[in-house]
């Protein structure tokens, strides 16, 4: 299909491999499907248009997450200037209430905690990597993780997790 190569992956292979990661970042951040889809498309459009050189697939993944976060931030800044007619027009994301799955509780957190916890627990990034992706200090990331866990515990009502 395409002749562009991204870290030994074609464009189609890159989409299939990282579509879940990019979609999760967008949904966790925006919490609705319509906006998440826009950011999802914009993220891969930038990948195709810019065609940056990646040293490895990990580099590609981090780049996609960073771009997806930027796209979400841009959309959020834009949405602040808009006045929605009704809140119910947006199809919000929802997860089943399950004692074993605390994804729904993650959505209750503030954005700054949510994205750190998501990258740490879902994407399995280290603190240093999260700090690099989010362009924050490592200690800041650690503080956000600690406070996020406490808030998550309060929301979930269970015991604290490491």
């Amino acid at each position: 299909m395409g002749d562009k190569i991204f870290a030994a992956l074609s464009y189609e292979e890159a989409i299939n491999q990282y579509k879940r990661t990019v979609a999760s970042v967008c949904l966790m951040r925006l919490k609705n499907h319509a906006d998440a889809e826009d950011c999802f498309q914009n993220t891969f459009f930038k990948l195709y248009r810019n065609s940056p050189d990646f040293e490895s697939q990990e580099h590609l993944k981090a780049w996609l997450i960073r771009v997806a976060i930027n796209e979400c931030n841009r959309l959020l800044r834009k949405s602040k200037r808009l006045l929605p007619l009704t809140y119910s027009d947006k199809e919000t994301i929802s997860f089943p209430y399950d004692k074993c799955d605390i994804s729904w509780a993650l959505l209750m957190l503030d954005l700054k905690y949510r994205q750190v916890l998501f990258l740490y627990y879902v994407e399995d990034y280290e603190v240093s990597q999260i700090a690099q992706i989010l362009d924050k200090n490592e200690n800041t990331v650690k503080s956000l993780l600690r406070r996020g866990r406490e808030k998550l515990k309060n929301i979930y009502g269970g015991e604290s997790y490491e």
Binding site: M1, I15, K19, R20, Q41, I102, L106, F118
Partner: peptide
Amino acid sequence: VNFDSIENLEIPDSWVEKAL
């Protein structure tokens, strides 16, 4: 912590088709 619902998130096919 179990985030299975996020990890197994279903991505609509229309998203991928548009991107492709």
